[in-house]
Design a protein around this nucleic acid. Structure first.
Length: 534
RNA sequence: GCCCCCGUAGCUCAGCGGAUAGAGCGGCGGACUUCUAAUCCGACGGUCGCAGGUUCGAUUCCUGCCGGGGGCGCCA
């Protein structure tokens, strides 16, 4: 890669000039075109240590580099307070094209960050007491894309859904179902959703409402998540922890480690020893487990299944729960960095500008299934992956369902469809793309052409950043940029037809192919389809 | 009171310590006899909430304040 070549050249020059070779050389793409194609700040960074003005250092660097410029380098300049800017010949972008095509959809932008480490990503995990509401789509799309990113970056990541299938809520759910069926009053705090009426009507007379309802919910969850294209590797049942004795085994292990104690008839975890602000009850004085207790057993189980790292994706409303869960994991002897909790801000739903309160119990809900049904998987997923998880997202149902331009999914998919259409037209016209090695890419000199390649060049960095920062939305941003660059190219540069020389047609066909590969990689990471026509 | 997230163009949001802060949408003005106009181009639009600090350099990091959202149970 060009950056590594430039960095190596700069490091060597720094060494020859008596600078500190330990200072890492940073190469970045300047925001402004006149600042060149690549820029380094070594002179700024090491000026103090060397005790000389940064511009003097930069001048020496430039002189040294000019003696034997690295490949593709046209000229090297000093700018501003002491930046060293590299202006490259377009050939560096032609190399990008070759790399993209040669490495292909499988190989390009596939950095090995994970080294095969196994990661368990748990997400959605809504209580099995009703359908997923529309806001849950954010967790579904996010978790799924995050796993895609991890897997692309050399981890072995799995998707997991935790079913809280025991406890108070389940009982309440079953009782609500039974009451609906019998036409009696709902229990105190019961579930009022319309879906309960439908399900009660389906429910046979001679069944346990909790069990029947639980099965019904799982079916619904599975169908909905299938419809959003999210397929979990594991559906983990909280009950199974009780049945297998894992909860008691966990309590025994914690006791053996001396991190629990009994007070006021309850069993407590010394979570303050692990960074929590107060100790937490694991077993209540009435003998029941708290929510935390099986949850610690659950995380112990994940590690027992061979995962090196565990990631939980939760809504920000669970913020107060993080410290005790992490404390619990640490109390079991794991390193605290082995468990990572990602908190996302909740989704506010609006319909025609008016907020729709989402409450499963109150029953005023818009289901995820309805939204997907209305707008389609692709629009739904891309919408949820448009913004950082730290931003509270407002989704106006009227907007995403209007198939209008407000929704960027069409913009991006249209670019892909155009690419495929171009390939079809070429085939119909009998234009055969020659092997890349036989094509002269140096005819690609138009800014529109080079812009496409500039964006493609950034994909590897984007993937790394999106993965390490747990920020799939960066891929969304990138995909929109590539689509924009492609549309501009498409508008200004003809690939086929009279007035275009054979050389240019050939080179542009490969340019289009590289864009197809890049767009495909990005959309695949997001779980959004890349249509061949629209 | 303590903890977390947010505050950037009219709206929704990008922005990985760098140079003159970007995109989409809306509004305004343009471009289709040619590979898909679901596209493209132009102009307009900003005290990056406020005040300090660190730094050669801060929208970005730190502290305080203001505003919005969420959380602080032997609930789940």
């Amino acid at each position: 890669m060009i950056r590594d070549d430039l960095a190596a050249a700069v490091a060597a020059a720094v060494g020859r000039l008596g600078g500190d070779p330990a200072v890492p050389v940073q190469l970045e793409r300047p925001a402004r075109r006149e600042h060149g194609d690549w820029s380094t700040n070594v002179a700024l960074v090491s000026a103090k240590a060397v005790g000389r003005p940064p511009r003097d250092l930069a001048a020496e660097l430039v002189a040294d580099l000019a003696a034997a410029p690295p490949a593709h380098v046209d000229r090297v300049e000093i700018a501003g307070p002491g930046f060293v800017n590299f202006h490259l010949a377009p050939t560096w972008l032609h190399d990008v094209l070759r790399t993209v095509v040669t490495e292909g959809p499988e190989g390009y932008a596939r950095p090995d960050l994970g080294g095969g480490r196994r990661v368990n990503v748990e997400f959605v995990s809504a209580n099995p007491t009703g359908p997923l509401h529309a806001g849950g789509g954010r967790w579904a799309a996010y978790g799924d894309a995050l796993v895609n990113l991890l897997n692309r970056c050399g981890y072995r990541a799995d998707r997991e859904y935790y079913l809280n299938d025991r406890g108070v809520q389940m009982g309440l759910f079953g009782a609500s179902l039974a009451a609906r069926k019998a036409g009696t009053d709902l229990p105190e705090g019961g579930y009022q959703g319309v879906y309960l009426e439908e399900w009660a009507a389906e429910m046979p007379d001679d069944v346990d409402p909790v069990e029947w309802g639980y099965a019904r919910v799982r079916q619904d969850l599975r169908e909905t998540l299938d419809a959003v294209g999210v397929h979990f590797d594991t559906w983990f049942s909280e009950r199974s922890l009780l049945d297998s004795g894992a909860i008691d085994a966990t309590l025994a292990e914690l006791a053996a480690r001396g991190v629990t104690y009994v007070a006021d008839g309850a069993t407590w975890l010394r979570s303050t020893d692990f960074g929590d602000d107060k100790d937490r009850v694991l077993v209540k004085s009435d003998g029941e487990y708290t929510y935390l207790c099986p949850d610690i057993a659950y995380h112990r189980d994940k590690f027992a299944r061979g995962y090196d790292q565990v990631i939980d994706v939760w809504g920000a409303d669970h913020h107060g729960y993080v410290a005790r869960l992490v404390a619990g994991v640490e109390a079991l002897g794991r390193r605290r960095e082995d468990v990572e909790v990602i908190l996302g801000q909740l989704v506010t739903l609006k319909r025609d500008g008016e907020e729709v309160r989402l409450s499963k119990r109150a029953g005023t809900m818009v289901t995820l299934a309805e939204v997907v049904d209305e707008v389609g998987v692709d629009a739904a997923r891309l919408t949820f992956l448009l913004q950082s998880l730290d931003t509270r997202q407002t989704v106006d149902l009227a907007v995403i369902s209007s198939k209008a331009m407000e929704n960027p999914v069409f913009y991006v998919q249209y670019a892909h469809a155009r690419i495929c259409s171009l390939a079809r037209t070429a085939a119909e016209a009998g234009v055969i793309r020659r092997p890349l090695a036989d094509v002269d890419l140096r005819v690609l000199v138009e800014e529109r052409e080079l812009d496409v390649l500039r964006v493609l060049a950034e994909l590897p960095d984007t993937v790394v950043g999106a993965c390490t920062e747990r920020a799939p939305h960066r891929v969304t941003t990138w995909v929109r940029e590539l689509a924009g660059a492609f549309h501009g190219f498409y508008h200004d540069c003809r690939v086929l037809g009279e007035g275009v020389t054979d050389e240019v047609t050939q080179a542009r066909l490969w340019l289009v192919e590289s864009a197809r590969i890049g767009l495909g990689i990005g959309l695949d990471l997001l779980g959004v389809s890349a249509p061949e026509q629209m």
